[in-house]
Design a binder for these strands. Structure first.
Length: 122
DNA sequence: CATCTGACGACCG
DNA sequence: GCGGTCGCCAGAT
């Protein structure tokens, strides 16, 4: 997958820890920044080996909407992450990713994950 | 080809 | 602390 670097990083997130989209984007040097990270996660194969629920918005906010929002909270809680309403306590759950440096410039790919279609699908 | 819309983030009031 | 704006990029309409 084109988002390999992102997934690889996310997979490394320890249980009970979380990363922000911005952190991911920065660590992988995704062109487009945080949003690119967001798209990457949206395109990620959920329910797989990718702990997407460990990726949250700036400040630990849970940006995902239903029905995943509740699922994410549940999963995080199960892992022992400190949850405060709709956000994670970055103070204790933030994870410092290893500096992934390698020139990975990829054209943000074409993933037919149409949020619209998805919405429809849902 | 023109617009809109996102699993975003930094800023400002 | 919350909500609105703008910048960003790609894909869908």
């Amino acid at each position: 997958m084109l988002w390999d670097p992102v997934y690889a990083l996310v997979k490394k997130i320890p249980r009970g820890k979380v990363l922000t989209y911005g952190a991911v984007a920065k660590a992988t040097r995704l062109p487009g920044g945080a949003r690119a990270a967001g798209r990457a996660m949206a395109a990620a194969p959920r329910g797989r080996a990718i702990p997407w629920h460990r990726v949250v918005g700036a400040g630990g906010k849970l940006l995902i909407r239903e029905p995943y929002a509740s699922l994410q909270k549940k999963l995080l809680a199960t892992e022992g992450a400190k949850l405060i309403e709709s956000r994670v306590d970055l103070k204790t759950c933030a994870w410092l990713p290893p500096a992934t440096r390698s020139t990975k410039q990829k054209s943000l790919a074409k993933r037919k994950t149409s949020s619209r279609a998805r919405k429809n699908f849902r």
